[in-house]
Design a binder for these strands. Structure first.
Length: 511
RNA sequence: GGGCCGCUAGCUCAAUGGUAGAGCAAAUGACUCUUAAUCAUUAGGUUACAGGUUCGAGUCCUGUGCGGCUCACCA
């Protein structure tokens, strides 16, 4: 059991927390439950505002204050601000649909409850109100409160009303406060949900079946990464948190589900950065009787459709760069991309010694890898990737780094694979899936060799997967898309933590 | 993991090595159309933590913790 306390020590909230606890006691003493179970039927803030707008427009634009018949509303939310002017007060109330101003007058709510409001209710408390809508002299649509009900007493104050919460660490650790006070954070995460809905809609409309496959796996695979390991007590066995969904989804294609996809979390036991997070959201799509060219079309159409649905445009800005997601996207082979950038032709320098030689001759200083394919990848990452600002498919990777992709018909050292890049970062990966079980076995055996050469990310042998393949998998196109990366591009967010509600942070140990 | 930067009141931020301050929030009072309401008064601090230098440390030095950026690895 964790003994650490994530919140700060009790004394640090200081007097204000104690004062609010005193108010809580006073409320109870007055027979008021500070945490009632329900408020009953209510309208959202948005509905309340709409109710007034409907009445006002029906009355015509010429109406002035007090002349429209004010609709009665009953709504609830968190008190976000408070302006007391003696025997009348203004406040703002917010729920997830918006915020509305409240107007309380002592002569309308009664002296007792008005005093209680002033003395025992704080900014941050959650209240329900009833009243009639009107427009103030300064033009703001407002609830003239006839009755206010405390729904939840808050014991800690909200962050500063003007600047909100800006400390990055606090925003991540106490995301609820970030969401309450920073509109940008709220918008980002609402947009995230809409993006995922749009992705589902896009795939559902094309006959794909959304499925769920194991997160805990006896053998991990489907990507090149180090896994998290956990232990199942009853089975007395190690299990791995999945690094991809791939091999299970392809089993479903073997099982006759010709179009499947899954949106879920993958886990990769690697460093955290602005572009990497150990737990991230991956979309994987498999389509029988399709190849990687079909997956390219699917990818660019999906991005375009999602952007149109969610943003209303396919033109986005990322870090000041204009990006156009409109299909078709540029397609370039990895060989041509490297050739353009460096003058090195990987098809001529087609073994490790000659490739290393070419790299030296071109004056490049790169980490030396264990095999030709890894070295090509290193060369590509160092010289091409960051320049791929506009969406670009990079095609035909070395076979050594692609143990699950089908060999290219004309170039047996390459595979039918693409990665796509937007704003200089890889956003996804796809191939014509390898369905030759004999070749699959030898690929895994080669991966075993890479592992003994020190490659901790080499793909493990998976006999159960080979057995499945031996039953026959139709020619299939597969695609993986990093949803967090997609969110970054669509929201112009340079850090992946800003698009993840609760990013991974070290626990803070309270002493 | 490396490099750079940061950590001061609940929040946002100040403070030549010389008495730790302001705004918001809070408390008390005034104010029945305010909206970053206004005005007056009050309280609030182990300056992340542990050492060191110094007559004197928020400030300089060392270490630790947490975070940000960046490089390395991956998507």
């Amino acid at each position: 059991m964790p003994e650490t306390i994530l919140a700060e020590p009790e004394h640090s909230a200081g007097d204000e927390r104690e004062q609010r606890i005193e108010k809580l006691k006073a409320l109870r003493a007055a027979g008021i439950d500070p945490y009632p179970a329900r408020f009953g039927v209510r309208q959202t803030v948005e509905e309340s505002l709409q109710a007034f707008a409907a009445v006002e427009s029906a009355a015509g634009n010429g109406s002035t204050e007090g002349q429209v018949s004010a609709p009665n509303v009953r709504t609830a939310g968190r008190l976000m601000s408070l302006r007391v002017m003696g025997k009348a007060s203004f406040a703002h109330l917010a729920d997830s649909t918006g915020r509305v101003q409240l107007y309380l007058r002592q002569d309308e709510v009664g002296q007792e409850s008005y005093d209680r409001f002033l003395k025992l209710i704080d900014i941050g408390d959650i209240v329900g109100v009833e009243g009639s809508m009107f427009r103030t002299r300064t033009g703001e649509v407002t609830v003239r409160v006839s009755e206010m009900t405390l729904l939840t007493k808050a014991l800690r104050p909200l962050p500063e009303k003007w600047h909100g919460l800006t400390d990055v660490e606090a925003r991540y650790r106490q995301r609820y406060l970030d969401l309450l006070t920073n509109e940008r954070a709220r918008n980002t995460f609402v947009l995230r949900t809409r993006v995922i809905s749009a992705v589902r809609r896009f795939l559902d409309e094309r006959g794909f079946l959304e499925v769920e496959t194991p997160v805990l796996q006896p053998i991990y695979g489907g990507a090149a990464a180090r896994p998290f390991v956990t232990f199942h007590n009853e089975m007395n066995a190690n299990l791995y948190l999945r690094i991809s969904d791939e091999l299970y989804l392809k089993r479903l294609v073997i099982g006759g589900l010709d179009r499947v996809y899954e949106i879920g979390h993958d886990f990769r036991n690697e460093g955290v950065s602005t572009r990497h997070h150990p737990e991230f959201t991956m979309l994987e799509v498999y389509q029988a009787y399709a190849d990687y060219h079909d997956m390219m079309r699917l990818t660019e159409e999906m991005y375009f459709s999602v952007a149109q649905q969610v943003l209303g445009t396919a033109h986005v800005t990322f870090s000041g760069q204009e990006i156009d997601l409109t299909p078709p996207w540029r397609r370039v082979t990895m060989r041509d991309a490297i050739l353009e950038a460096t003058g090195i032709d990987i098809l001529l320098a087609n073994d490790l010694p000659s490739l290393l030689d070419a790299i030296r001759q071109h004056g490049l200083e790169l980490e030396v890898k264990h095999n030709w394919g890894k070295q090509v990848e290193e060369l590509f990452d160092a010289t091409v990737q960051s320049d791929l600002v506009q969406p670009t498919f990079v095609l035909n990777h070395p076979v050594e780094i692609s143990p699950l992709a089908k060999r290219h018909a004309d170039q047996p050292s390459l595979v039918e694979r693409f990665e796509f890049f937007i704003a200089g970062q890889e956003s996804g990966n796809a191939f014509s899936e390898l369905n030759d079980p004999i070749d699959q076995r030898s690929r895994f055996e080669n991966q075993g060799q890479h592992r003994s050469d020190g490659d901790e990310e080499a793909h493990p042998m998976d006999e159960d997967w080979i057995r499945a393949l031996e039953h026959g998998m139709p020619p299939t196109g597969g695609l993986g898309v990093g949803i967090d990366r997609m969110m970054m591009v669509l929201t112009d967010t340079p850090s992946i933590r800003e698009v993840i509600l609760f990013p991974a942070l070290r626990s803070k140990v309270a002493e």
